[in-house]
Design a protein around this nucleic acid. Sequence first.
DNA 1: GATTTTCTGGACTTGAGGGTCCAAAAAATG
DNA 2: CATTTTTTGGACCCTCAAGTCCAGAAAATC
Lengths: 201, 201
Amino acid sequence: MALTAKGLATRQRIIEGTSAHLRSDVPGTVTLDDIRAITGTSKGQLFHYFPGGKEELLLAVARFEADRVISDQQPHLGALTSWAAWTRWRNAIVARYRAQGPSCPLGTLMDQVGATPGAAEVAAALLARWQGMIRAGIAAMQAEDLVDPALDADRAAAAFIAGIQGGVQILRSTGESTHLEAVVDLLIEHLRATRDGAGGR
Amino acid sequence: MALTAKGLATRQRIIEGTSAHLRSDVPGTVTLDDIRAITGTSKGQLFHYFPGGKEELLLAVARFEADRVISDQQPHLGALTSWAAWTRWRNAIVARYRAQGPSCPLGTLMDQVGATPGAAEVAAALLARWQGMIRAGIAAMQAEDLVDPALDADRAAAAFIAGIQGGVQILRSTGESTHLEAVVDLLIEHLRATRDGAGGR
DNA sequence: GATTTTCTGGACTTGAGGGTCCAAAAAATG
DNA sequence: CATTTTTTGGACCCTCAAGTCCAGAAAATC
């Protein structure tokens, strides 16, 4: 099956259309008919481009969304080299997830494809990439002696990932961003405290 | 509709049976037929005791599970009055969720009833209760001057909740408890650091 | 421009699963 | 013990949604 330019465009339209639908209002669950309606396609097309059916389609959308998660935090996430940068990053995250509200495209997808090995792999890849970037930021701070070099950067990065993940989950179900803010702020404070001494706020 | 003792027992059997099923192996999704099979009941009974159908039934199970979440952390969670107690609590959480592995009864339920207002209320109630107990623990430590009294106990408790939530979620999909351990450990370290000075590990 | 490949539309099948209904058995009631 | 209420079983219905199939339109290929 070789795809022509037209075919590729259609395939992309399906992915992006589904993504857009997840982004806006009451998804909860997505059906192939929803996707058909939004993207102006037929069942035949859906299975033509995604022979594996719904699962393969949703997984493709999940990969697309995963990239967005990272890129939405840029350029901040890629340059955590000063406390000011950390603050900007923190604000970007809070703003992004507040704006997103209870929808959370990736979350919805994961709920639906959750069990499959493919989904786990997508999630693991995203988390690993994300954690790696935070770790790089911490390492950069350590190189400039702004964070205690004895701190385990990878472990701290893992803590950030867990905290953000949980904070977003709570934001998703309550609509409140206080938990997300609290955990990120405290973890950043902790990074500072290792260097400045107690109560370094 | 007044329930006799027999009726009440059946109702309870349905809830606990469903709960047990969620706890053990590959749930992902639960159907009324699953529940029928496990609890040895008929459709008629299911709707007799839960006129609201599947949603009402699952919500009842969710409430049952929510109680378990708290009680599984006892007696540690109720008496966070020394660093040793905090460590025991931390170990209890890690052990509990590691043992549970990727199943997570409450998570499965929330995925399925997620959208409804009732589910949000159950989740919010659990989180509030949980956070309150952690806050009480922090306050106790502050009273004994083991934690900086200037620290916002409620905010710190919120951070713990978010961190645990995220750590469990990651454990659920990767099978690794490193994130959960990292975030809880770092937050506890942070509590200590506010009092002991920098690097108080 | 004939032929082969790719793309598109939509009717149809299939199955799962939630919910309804009613009648029989069992308890409670008095 | 007659009657009323509760409990139980299971056949049936209905909807929704994934997936199949095939024929016709549009591109590509030579």
